[in-house]
Design a protein around this nucleic acid. Sequence first.
DNA 1: AAAAAAATTGTAAACGGTTACATTTTCAAA
DNA 2: TTTGAAAATGTAACCGTTTACAATTTTTTT
Lengths: 352, 352
Amino acid sequence: MPKEKEVTIYDIASALNISIATVSRALKNDPVVSKRTKKKIFDLAAKMGYRTNHFARNLRNQTTNTIGIIVHELSSNFITSVLAGVEKVTTEAGYDLIIAHSSESFSKEIANAKNLFDKRVDGLIASLSFDTKNLDHYKPFKEKNVPVIFFDRVEQDGKNTVVVIDNDKCGYQATEHLIQQGCKRIVHITSSLKRNVYAQRFNGYKEALSENGIPYDENLLIVHDLSESAAIESAMQMLKMNPLPDGVFITNDFVAAVVMRTLKENNIKIPEDMAIVGFNNDAICTLVEPALSTINYPGIDVGEVAARNLVNHLKGIGNIQNTNTIIIRSNLIIRNSSLKSEIIEKGKKKLN
Amino acid sequence: MPKEKEVTIYDIASALNISIATVSRALKNDPVVSKRTKKKIFDLAAKMGYRTNHFARNLRNQTTNTIGIIVHELSSNFITSVLAGVEKVTTEAGYDLIIAHSSESFSKEIANAKNLFDKRVDGLIASLSFDTKNLDHYKPFKEKNVPVIFFDRVEQDGKNTVVVIDNDKCGYQATEHLIQQGCKRIVHITSSLKRNVYAQRFNGYKEALSENGIPYDENLLIVHDLSESAAIESAMQMLKMNPLPDGVFITNDFVAAVVMRTLKENNIKIPEDMAIVGFNNDAICTLVEPALSTINYPGIDVGEVAARNLVNHLKGIGNIQNTNTIIIRSNLIIRNSSLKSEIIEKGKKKLN
DNA sequence: AAAAAAATTGTAAACGGTTACATTTTCAAA
DNA sequence: TTTGAAAATGTAACCGTTTACAATTTTTTT
């Protein structure tokens, strides 16, 4: 299976008896080339099946035309939609995308960063893994002036450009909503509080409690990873509480769905006995029963905004150095898993 | 923000007062270089922050070290797990991966194929979009001897290497199971019968019916796309049937979940009134109520096998020319959405 | 110690583009 | 027709590797 020889600008040039410089310029649509020769060149290029050699071009241009993205998992609804948003923008802008995932491991994230650095991506978009301890592995990018934008799981030390939502507010809104539904003992199931997103949602949760005169009870905080087994455990933990909680704010829809299932299996009525609010607004929300209230966290927007800012920076339009934090709109979506008040209303009606 | 100059083998060579040839060889760990000089070179390279220029290398080597993959959607559970499988193998083997998605559009698939061809991927993995009419856009790859492996949605004309499951058998098993549960009027909700996967599952469905003496009724066949709205429509269509069906085999878990929700909203009891079997074994299956019976279609295995075969072919181990069809194991998973017989048993017990 | 063989290193030509600078062609103005 | 500027094209160096082949150094053999 010998590789066929590729057509190069040399072949086109000699076939037309012109110089490679003209061919090169024509193929880039340089206005300096006359329309006549341009047409000849384009036609022949098409006929001969010419394809530009990106390696030769990039070698000469000292640019890779590639953007890297580091995520913690592919099998997450949120991440997938971020990727879709990023892909849309980068493709439009003519960049290649290299996707790397860390499987929530610090060491893999470091390896990925090193790999993308060695591949010389023009820019990087990254979300931190679960147990990422520091950002040293992104230093080489800074040193070589390769722009990096973080999203979702980030380090908000003001030194980096980050695309996030107002997690504080989201945590606040979710909790406040549960309180408004009459919940008094509200559990919060979340993940490592070392990660900004979870820490901030937790803060919002505490603020909402305190502003509504409910004392924070640390026994109602459950910290776990985001796996199915952890979710089941969390639910069992809730069931052992005495008195039972009457509401729960969960930092992830999948976990929320599993918790809800487990609670129902144990004869808890949702939302009557316990109201539930999840996070992300995955497709799953409207498929479980009752439908899951949640925070709408539009991954596609996150991806688009992050990619757009990076691309603009690379093209010299705008500069991410000036931008520290970009906050994406998010909002609470109320569905039946937390709608106690209607039930209360119904109950009242029955009494009449 | 001037780009810092990169360290090249020239820099290392002149610093050590040796030739670039030796440096180049040392960095590739060529045994011809003495251990002493090798060590000097490695040490200095590390100290100077040398990174190999992949463009120069690929230009010289006439190889891209890149594999392309064309899928129809990113936001599909199945596709994501295929990607995970592919990614695992290609990364291990040292290949880059370029992911392109067609959003189920023929023209986009053509554009993606052209793009990946122009990027000169060493090999291609592809699943056809919904309305792909022909495979002409893959011809350039064949002509240049670039290996292509198709998976899931494929053209089984014997001309291509494909990785699939036995969709016939799956359709048969799903339907047979419903029949065993006592279903007599079994609806089949699927997608375009022009695509092999759906056509074959449909075949299996018909075979199971006929072998069990149930005449095929074309009114029970519903063909739609795989969107939520289409799923709702399909369910409404079922509800209008007279007499009502008592079972349904659906070609996709998400659609099955939406159908089930819609049926339940219309006071249909699952599985008592209608038993449901989906397809894929997405995470969603155990989160809906009742849990969804389904066909387990392990995307990660599909991805791994496809990538492994491609990589081996590229490395000269094995040859996909000799392999036409690779069939991945799949199996029926029975959950409560189709378990009528237990109910029947319970009913009998009550009578006693 | 000289000669031959083996091990190591070096030279220089690719790979296929881009582009500064030089040269030629074209065409309007003098 | 000559001149000069503008338009078009050409020349050649460069981007950073790899590798055939040549040259040198080291080791072994005689």
